[in-house]
Write a protein that binds this DNA or RNA. Sequence first.
DNA 1: TTTTAATTTGCAGCTATTGCTAGCTAACAA
DNA 2: TTGTTAGCTAGCAATAGCTGCAAATTAAAA
Lengths: 154, 154
Amino acid sequence: MRSPSELAQVFRDKHLKLTPQRQLLFSLLHQNPSHPTAESLYEIASKQMPGISLRTIYQTLGELAEMGELQLVDVGIGATRFDPNIGDHHHFVCESCRAIHDVDILTAPKMSLRNGGGFAVDEVGVIFRGRCNRCNHKQQVRSPGSQAKNKASN
Amino acid sequence: MRSPSELAQVFRDKHLKLTPQRQLLFSLLHQNPSHPTAESLYEIASKQMPGISLRTIYQTLGELAEMGELQLVDVGIGATRFDPNIGDHHHFVCESCRAIHDVDILTAPKMSLRNGGGFAVDEVGVIFRGRCNRCNHKQQVRSPGSQAKNKASN
DNA sequence: TTTTAATTTGCAGCTATTGCTAGCTAACAA
DNA sequence: TTGTTAGCTAGCAATAGCTGCAAATTAAAA
């Protein structure tokens, strides 16, 4: 997503108010690679602005997503994640610690439809599931004999 | 997933009871390509077995998924879908009617990790979003001038 | 300033799912 | 056939993660 000051301009141009709540969220999100949930942003924001409402967080995140400034990532477990990286990329989810990491794909998936076609595809989302480096290592240390299932590695 | 009679044997072998509720679900799921939700299965099951509990549907679906007899599909909107096709395939979601279709991919996605690796990947899920044949056609009939966004088609 | 329309807040309500448990029953043994 | 019991079901409460609504607040145009 754009920088807080650029976003401020975008909001002004659209005759949207530049409230302190929004400005705070702009800066919390800008280049935040941790794929936070609304809840976790709420906790962080609350420290800097006690009394800010979770409802406002959801509201603003929704607006930013609708404006294309922010990507919504749903990995199937837990809450929706918000990703300021709106470039073409995908996600790796650690099934142990639930952390999400950005992933670049070299070969874009091509598909052939079983029923002969007729689908207009807007977007393709790829989710890799497994164990991240840290969790994989933790398990090996605890029980060196038991190997994690590992159909593919990188 | 396996046929109802094969599943019955699996359950017997595991000393799990073969209740009428389970048998009904086996047959409702077997070769059901519509990716039903727990709720929709509940509605269908209720007609054949009034009084069956939604709780039991969730319970049994969870067990079957855990046994690897059926795939859990979460496309980010609405409830979890259940897919008896446990072969290697992916999904297309129509953003208009929310129907899900199985998709075979020719080129398995390869990835390069931004941070240099260390991820052990267990599974890769690809979700294609767009408009299915039928919905695409409906829209064109209603407003022939407005084209659906169509970054890729098949 | 004043005005006005956008925004925030708090809370109720919703969907999808899981936790709990009393009572029931399939399956096996006798 | 009957008894025993582990395993199952039903039903309801509870939960997470949101979204809808209306009143109070406030940024910013006039």
